[in-house]
Nucleic acid binder design. Sequence first.
DNA 1: AGCCTGACAGATA
DNA 2: GTATCTGCCAGGC
Length: 108
Amino acid sequence: MARDARTAAILELVDAIPRGRVMTYGDVARTLGIASPRLVGQVMARDGHEVAWHRVVLATGRPADHLVAEQCARLAEEGVPLCGRRVDLAAARWLPGSAARTSGVEGR
DNA sequence: AGCCTGACAGATA
DNA sequence: GTATCTGCCAGGC
C-alpha cells in the first residue's frame, strides 16, 4: 500500500470530516496541497474502507455512481442536507477551519 | 523499466 | 447541464 504522506493525509482529513458535513474530492486534494483529486478517490478505493469515505462526494454534489445508494443513505442518516440524489454543497460543504458553523442548515 | 487503469476536477464547446 | 480533453498520483501487469 501507499503509506505515503499524501495517502495518510487524505485518510486523516476524510476521517476528520464531522458528521453531517461533506467535502468534495477537489477540496480534499487542494486542502492537502495535492493537485490531483484522483488521488483522493484512489486512496479511498484502496484504504478508504476504514474512513468516512461516505462524507466525500463529487464536485457536482453527487456521490460516485457506485455509491449513490450507500452514500445517500448514510448522508441522510447523518443529517446531511440532501437535494434529491445530490448533496447541497452550499450548506454541507465543510472546510477545515470553518468547522465553526456545525450544522450548515442553520449556518448563518 | 514502461504502459494502462482508476471513488475526479476544471476549462472549453 | 452535458460532452470532451487534459492534468495528476499510485498500483498492477
